[in-house]
Nucleic acid binder design. Structure first.
Length: 152
DNA sequence: GCCAACGTTGGC
DNA sequence: GCCAACGTTGGC
């Protein structure tokens, strides 16, 4: 069992959208490192911190879990999609995803608050220049974040 | 809107 | 295989 932080722009898919939709494909990842995490390392049941990025108050806003094994991202084959990839074919797909199921909404644990917490200093997502939309979270970090989320 | 940091592309 | 130019992410 592993833990992850996954970024989503709320204007695309917010935590409220995710809760309404239920288990859904985490489409649109076009970074190889992030893809490889989904393809090679994620397992059904892994814990996910649902993070809002590119918005007024970036931060963790909910808890989710990995809900499928990896399979090809359908948007890569759709010429009308923003995520279309002309170099990908169904026989030779480039982009692989998993389904993610939102479990609950939490308070916003803002990026600023996370940065201010010494116990989270090692989090990959907080490292300078980190832009990865999917990053691993250690068990220790997961526990600290959950405690902070349930506070107040 | 700015810009730092990083990833990708493509010429050589 | 190198690396400059360009594109993207994402916080501020």
């Amino acid at each position: 069992m592993k833990y992850w932080l996954m970024k989503s722009e709320p204007s695309e898919v917010s935590i409220d959208d995710a809760l309404r939709i239920g288990a859904a494909p985490w489409f649109g990842v076009r970074n190889y490192q992030a893809r490889n995490f989904m393809r090679d390392q994620m397992q059904v049941g892994d814990g996910v911190l649902f993070y809002h990025s590119s918005c007024d108050e970036p931060g963790v806003v909910g808890i989710a879990e990995v809900a499928s094994t990896p399979y090809p991202d359908a948007t890569q084959f759709d010429a009308k999609s923003h995520y279309f990839d002309p170099k990908a074919t169904p026989e030779n797909p480039r982009w692989i995803l998993v389904d993610v199921k939102a479990i609950r909404k939490t308070r916003v644990l803002s990026l600023a608050e996370m940065r201010a917490n010494e116990d989270l200093a090692s989090m990959v997502v907080l490292q300078k220049g980190s832009r990865l939309s999917i990053t691993p979270v250690t068990v220790a970090e997961w526990k600290v974040v959950l405690k902070l989320l349930d506070k107040k």
